[in-house]
Design a protein around this nucleic acid. Structure first.
Length: 937
RNA sequence: GCUCGAGUGGCGGAAUUGGUAGACGCGCUGGAUUCAAAAUCCAGUUCUUUCGGGAGUGUGGGUUCGAUUCCCACCUCGAGUACCA
C-alpha cells in the first residue's frame, strides 16, 4: 500500500478536531510548558509558505514537550485590529469586522491543513468586544496608577492623593511631567477638584498631554517612534511631520531602568536584547544649569562629559526649544525666526537626509559659565534634537565632533583642554589615558576622577547634579482610526473620566464613513451614537449631550500594539468574563516559556508587552514580571522571483542569455509559470497577461529562460508560493519537514520548491519501512543489534537537535536513520514503534497513521518519548586516524577500551607506521583516546 | 559612522570544550529496470594530478603536533540603528 498522504492527513486532522486532542487543561499533575507564536494579523492575501515557518518550529517543540510528559499550552489567535481592513473599508464600504472575519476564516482553513497542534478552544481575537473589554480595563488601571521611584513600582493613584493631602509633593519621588509645580499639603487641599485632576494627570501612567507627535498626513494618524522607519511610515512609506496634538501617552519612560535590567534575566538572543538596549538608550552623565546673562532664565543641559566643562565655548539650543523666543535679542530676531521657520518646514526625512550640512544662527544672548563666569554665546542649530535630553547642549568643540564642526563652520573658538592632544583638525572623543588640562580644579586629572569631582562640585554649588538620561520616550497611545479599541473615556469640562469597569466593554460604534470628518476629527467623529450618559451608564446619541449628565466620548482609538501587549495572558483563561485572566490560571501557567516570532517586533511589541507585564505585576494582577522567558526569532523565507525581459518599446521578449547588449525592461512573471529549470511556459504566460497575448518570444534552443532574483515574498512580485498547493501535491508532513530542512531556523533563506522531492521521498521510504508491498508488515521478532544502534543513535541526535532548535539537522538525521534501517531490512516493532513517536513532532499525520497500524488505539501524541539507551550505542572498536606531523596517512581499527599506552604501542608496531618512519624514532606521539593518534617526526 | 551577525563544493547547508572538512538533501554523471517515459534502485560527484600525491573552509599573519573552530589585522555581504550631547 503506497503512501496516500492526502487521505491520511485529512483523516487525522478530522480526528484531532473531533477528539480535541490538543486541548490543554489548567489543572494537571504534569509540569507545565507554554509555547507561543506571535499571533498573525489576518491579511487579505492569506498565508504564504513563509508564514508557517515559526509555527512549524513551535509546533514541533510543543509536540515534543507533550511526549516528554509536559502539560503544554500551545494556543493561537488573531491580532485582528489593524489598518488594511480599515483601508479596504474606506475603498469599498465593507465593514472591517466583515473583512476581518472572512480573512480569519481563510487563515484558519490554511492553518488547519498544516496539522498544527493548537488548542483552538482558547482562540483570542483582539477585535472581539469580549477581548478588548480587558484591553480597556488595563488602560483604566494604567490611568489609575502612578510610578513611585522610591519603591520602583507602580501604585494606585488613590495612594498618591493621600500623600498629596498629607504632605504635598515636595518630598515625593515620583515620575511626572517636567513642568509639574510643587505644592504643600495645604495648597493641595485648597485646590479645586478640576485643578487636582489636572495635577494628577501629570502623574498617571497613561495621560493626556499636548505633545509633539509624528503626524502622517497620508494615513491621517499619528505614529509611535517604532512605527517610523527612515523618516517615513513603516506601513505605506508615507512622509511623517512633527505636529503638536493632544494625545494619550503611556508613561513607559518610568520603566526604562527596569526594562533594561530585566533583559539580563531572560533568554533572548543577544542581538535582540541589544536592540532593546539601544532603544532604551541609557546614558549616565550630569545635568548642568547655565545662567543666561541679563535674563531671569537658565538653560539646563544634559551631558555625558561634564569633565569637559572647561572646554565649553558656546551653547546650542534646538530650534524648537522654548527659551529661543525668550532670549533672542532684538537685533537677531529676524534671522532666528527665519531659521526656525525653515527648520519647521523640513520634514523629518529631509532633516535626516542631509546631516552633513551645518546650519545654525546666533541668538545674540550669552550664558555664564558655571565655574569661570565667562560669557558663552548661545546659538541655535538643528543638529540638536528637541526630543532628546533637554533639547540644549553645552558645546565642547575639542571633545565632540559635531560641536567641532559647528565651531569651525561659524568661526567659534575651540579651546583645548586635553594634554598632548591636537584638536585643531578634529575633536578628541577618547576618555581613558588622557589628562585634562586648562580646567582649573580639574587640571591634571584623568577622565574618571574628573567626572566624579565635577559632579560633586556642581552639586555643591547647586548648579547641576549627576543624572541618568534615557532615549526611550513616552509612547503616544492615540490613533485617529476607526478599526481599533475605543478608549473607555468621556470628557467633562475637557477633563478625561473613565467609564466604570462594570460597564465595559465600550463597543466600537457604527459609522457611515471610515474617513476622518470634514472638521478633521478622527473617524469616530462620524458616529451619531457616541455620547456617554452618566446617569444610566450607557452610550446615547450625540444630540443628547448636555454637559451635565451626558458627555462626549473620546474619538481616538488605541494603537495596534494595545491588544498584543497582554494577549499571552488571555490564552491562559480565554473567555473568562470576570477577569482578564484568573489568578489561578495565571499562577499555573506563569508566563511564556518559549516564544517564536520575527525580529521586526524588537522595539515595538516586545518592549510594550514587557512594559504592561511589569505594570500588571506591580499592581498585583500577575505573578511574573516578564512575559517571555525564552525567545527565538525565525528568519524570513524569501521568494525567488522570475523575470522576463521585454525589449524597450517593443512587444518582444528575449530569453535571459540574450539580454546582454539589449535595452530591456524586466517584468515579474508568475513563478507558477516557470519550471525548475527556469523555463517559462510561454502559452501560460500569454493567457496570464492578456496584454502580452500577441507578444513574440525569442527563445534559446526552443526554450525561454527567465531571470531569477531573491526578494521578499509578495503578491505584487508574483513570487508567492501557497502552502495549500504544497500540501495538495506533497502533503503537510512534507511541507513541515521541508520548511525545517531549508536551513537554520533563525536565518533568512529563499524558498525553492525544487528541493522538496528529497524530503517527500524520505517520507515514502519511511512508509515503506512499515510495509511489505501493499501489506502493513511489522514483525514481533527481536531487532538486530545494528538496527537498535541506528534507532538509539537517532533518538540521541534528534533529541539534542530539538533542544537546541537545530531542526534542519534533525531532518537529516531521520533521513540517515531510514536509509540505514532500509539497508538493514529492519521491520521489527522494537525499532519501528519508537521511531513513529520520534518523528511524530515533525510529521504528525504519517506518525498517527503508522501508530494506529501498529495496533494502538490512542493518539500518538499520548505516547512517551523514546529514551536513548546508551548500551546500544557502545562500540567495541574505533577507527583511529593516524597522522604524521598533523597529516593523516591511514586509519587503524583498535579496541575502544585500550589505554593511551596500549594505543601508542599498537600504532608504533604497525607496519605502515614503521614504513612511514623508515627506521628513525618518532619525536613525540600524541594519543587522544577515542579520537586520533598523531606522530611527530 | 556605531552595534550585532555571517563568509565552507554547482546550490541549500553539516561539523566548534581544537582531532578523518564537505554529513543530509538538491542538481549533475553513469548504470539497473522499462518498448519508452515517469517512478524506483545502485554507483560516482571539492578542485587538481604525471594517480605517488598536492591544494583547499573570505584574505594575510599568529598560537599548536594538529585550526572551519582560538587570537590579531583586513576584505566582503547581511541585519539593526543613526546628529542621542
Amino acid at each position: 500500500m503506497s503512501y496516500h498522504f492526502n487521505k491520511i492527513e485529512e483523516k487525522w486532522q478530522k480526528y484531532w478536531a473531533q477528539n480535541q486532542t490538543y486541548k490543554a487543561s489548567n489543572e494537571s499533575e504534569k509540569p507545565k510548558y507554554y509555547v507561543l507564536d506571535m499571533f498573525p494579523y489576518p491579511s487579505g492575501a492569506g498565508l504564504h509558505v513563509g508564514h508557517p515557518l515559526g509555527y512549524i518550529a513551535s509546533d514541533i517543540y510543543a509536540r515534543y514537550k507533550r511526549h516528554k510528559g509536559f502539560n503544554v499550552l500551545h494556543p493561537q489567535g488573531y491580532d485582528s485590529f489593524g489598518l488594511p481592513a480599515e483601508q479596504y473599508a474606506i475603498q469599498t464600504g465593507q465593514h472591517p469586522a466583515l473583512t476581518t472575519e472572512n480573512n480569519i476564516n481563510r487563515y484558519r482553513e490554511q492553518l488547519d491543513k498544516i496539522g498544527f497542534s493548537f488548542d483552538w478552544s482558547r482562540e483570542v481575537r483582539t477585535s472581539e468586544p469580549d477581548y478588548y473589554k480587558w484591553t480597556q480595563w488595563i488602560f483604566i488601571q494604567l490611568f489609575e496608577s502612578w510610578y513611585d521611584e522610591e519603591a520602583e513600582k507602580s501604585r494606585p493613584i488613590t495612594e498618591l492623593e493621600e500623600i498629596f493631602s498629607a504632605e504635598g509633593n515636595t518630598r515625593l519621588n515620583a515620575v511626572c511631567d517636567d513642568d509639574t509645580e510643587s505644592f504643600t499639603a495645604d495648597e493641595w487641599n485648597a485646590f479645586s477638584a478640576d485643578d487636582k485632576e489636572r495635577i494628577l494627570l501629570k502623574y498617571r501612567l497613561t495621560y493626556l498631554a499636548e505633545a509633539e507627535v509624528n503626524w502622517c498626513p497620508q494615513l491621517g494618524t499619528v505614529l509611535a517612534n517604532d512605527e517610523i522607519v527612515n523618516g517615513v511610515s513603516e506601513r505605506g512609506g508615507y512622509p511623517v511631520v512633527r505636529k503638536k496634538m493632544t494625545q494619550w501617552s503611556m508613561r513607559i519612560s518610568a520603566f526604562a531602568e527596569r526594562l533594561l535590567q530585566g533583559l539580563d534575566k531572560i533568554d533572548w538572543t543577544e542581538s535582540l536584547k541589544e536592540s532593546q538596549r539601544n532603544w532604551i538608550g541609557k546614558s549616565v552623565g550630569a545635568h548642568v544649569d547655565f545662567k543666561i546673562q541679563n535674563s531671569p532664565y537658565k538653560i539646563g543641559v544634559f551631558t555625558t562629559r561634564p569633565d569637559t566643562i572647561f572646554g565649553v565655548t558656546f551653547m546650542t539650543l534646538a530650534p524648537e526649544h522654548e527659551l529661543v523666543k525668550k532670549i533672542t535679542t532684538p537685533e537677531h530676531k529676524e534671522e532666528v525666526e527665519a531659521y526656525m521657520e525653515a527648520t519647521a518646514k523640513r520634514s523629518e526625512r529631509e532633516r535626516m537626509a542631509d546631516v552633513k550640512t551645518i546650519s545654525g544662527v546666533f541668538t545674540g544672548a550669552y550664558a555664564e559659565h558655571p565655574f569661570t563666569g565667562e560669557s558663552v554665546p548661545i546659538w541655535i542649530g538643528d543638529y540638536v534634537l528637541a526630543g532628546y535630553g533637554t533639547g540644549a547642549v553645552m558645546a565642547v568643540p575639542c571633545g565632540d565632533q559635531r560641536d567641532h564642526d559647528f565651531a569651525r563652520h561659524f568661526d567659534i573658538p575651540i579651546k583645548n583642554i586635553f594634554e598632548n592632544v591636537d584638536v585643531s583638525q578634529e575633536a578628541y572623543a577618547g576618555k581613558e589615558g588622557t589628562v585634562i588640562a586648562n580646567s582649573d580644579f580639574l587640571s591634571g586629572l584623568e577622565y574618571k576622577e574628573a567626572l566624579n569631582k565635577v559632579i560633586l562640585e556642581l552639586e555643591k554649588t547647586g548648579q547641576g547634579y549627576g543624572k541618568t538620561n534615557y532615549r526611550l520616550r513616552d509612547a503616544v497611545f492615540s490613533r485617529q482610526r476607526y478599526w481599533g479599541e475605543p478608549f473607555p473615556v468621556y470628557y467633562v469640562n475637557g477633563l478625561p473620566k473613565m467609564i466604570e469597569e462594570k460597564y465595559l466593554p465600550l463597543r466600537l460604534p457604527e459609522v457611515e464613513k471610515y474617513l476622518p470628518t470634514e472638521t478633521g476629527e478622527p473617524p469616530l467623529g462620524n458616529a451619531t451614537h457616541w455620547a456617554w450618559d452618566t446617569k444610566n451608564n450607557e452610550v446615547v446619541s450625540n444630540s443628547e449631550i448636555d454637559d451635565k449628565t451626558i458627555f462626549p466620548l473620546e474619538l481616538n482609538t488605541m494603537p495596534g500594539w494595545a491588544g498584543s501587549s497582554w494577549y499571552l495572558f488571555r490564552y491562559m483563561d480565554a473567555g473568562n468574563p470576570d477577569r482578564f485572566v484568573s489568578e489561578e490560571a495565571q499562577k499555573y501557567w506563569e508566563n511564556v516559556d518559549l516564544y517564536i516570532g520575527g525580529s521586526e517586533h524588537a522595539t515595538g511589541h516586545l518592549l510594550y508587552s514587557r512594559f504592561w507585564t511589569k505594570f500588571l505585576y506591580d499592581r498585583g494582577w500577575l505573578t511574573v514580571e516578564e512575559p517571555f522567558k525564552k525567545l527565538i526569532n525565525q528568519g524570513m523565507i524569501l521568494g525567488t522571483s522570475a523575470f522576463v525581459y521585454r525589449l524597450e518599446g517593443e512587444n518582444v521578449f528575449v530569453s535571459k542569455n540574450q539580454v546582454k547588449g539589449n535595452n530591456v525592461q524586466p517584468i515579474h512573471a508568475d513563478v507558477s509559470l516557470v519550471n525548475a529549470s527556469d523555463e517559462l511556459d510561454i502559452e501560460g504566460f500569454k493567457r496570464w497577461r492578456p496584454e502580452f497575448a500577441e507578444a513574440k518570444f525569442l527563445t534559446e534552443d526552443g526554450k525561454y529562460i527567465v531571470g531569477r532574483e531573491v526578494e521578499k515574498m509578495s503578491k505584487s512580485k508574483y513570487n508567492v508560493v501557497n502552502p495549500d498547493d504544497i500540501c495538495a501535491n506533497y502533503g503537510a508532513d512534507t511541507l513541515r519537514m521541508y520548511e525545517m530542512f531549508l536551513g537554520p531556523l533563525d536565518q533568512a533563506k529563499p524558498w525553492n520548491t525544487a528541493g522538496i522531492t528529497g524530503v517527500h521521498s524520505f517520507l515514502k521510504k519511511l512508509w515503506k519501512l512499515y510495509h511489505n508491498g501493499e501489506e502493513f508488515s511489522v514483525s514481533d521478532e527481536k531487532a538486530s543489534a545494528d538496527s537498535l544502534k541506528t534507532l538509539h543513535k537517532t533518538i540521541k541526535k534528534v533529541t539534542e537537535d530539538i533542544e537546541e532548535f537545530s531542526f534542519n539537522t534533525s531532518v537529516s538525521t531521520f533521513m540517515i536513520c531510514v536509509n540505514e534501517l532500509t539497508a538493514q531490512k529492519c521491520n521489527s516493532r522494537d525499532v519501528l514503534e519508537p521511531l513513529a513517536v520520534l518523528i511524530a513532532p515533525y510529521a504528525p499525520h504519517i506518525a498517527e497513521e503508522l501508530w494506529e497500524r501498529l495496533g494502538n488505539t490512542d493518539s500518538v501524541s499520548t505516547a512517551r518519548y523514546p529514551v536513548c539507551e546508551e548500551k546500544y550505542l557502545v562500540e567495541s572498536t574505533k577507527n583511529y586516524p593516524v597522522s604524521f606531523n598533523g597529516k593523516m596517512r591511514f586509519t587503524m581499527e583498535l579496541p575502544l577500551d585500550l589505554g593511551k599506552d596500549d594505543i601508542e604501542k599498537a600504532v608504533l608496531e604497525d607496519d605502515r607506521t614503521k614504513n612511514q618512519l623508515s627506521g628513525s624514532a618518532p619525536k613525540k606521539v600524541i594519543v587522544v583516546p577515542g579520537k586520533i593518534v598523531n606522530i611527530v617526526v
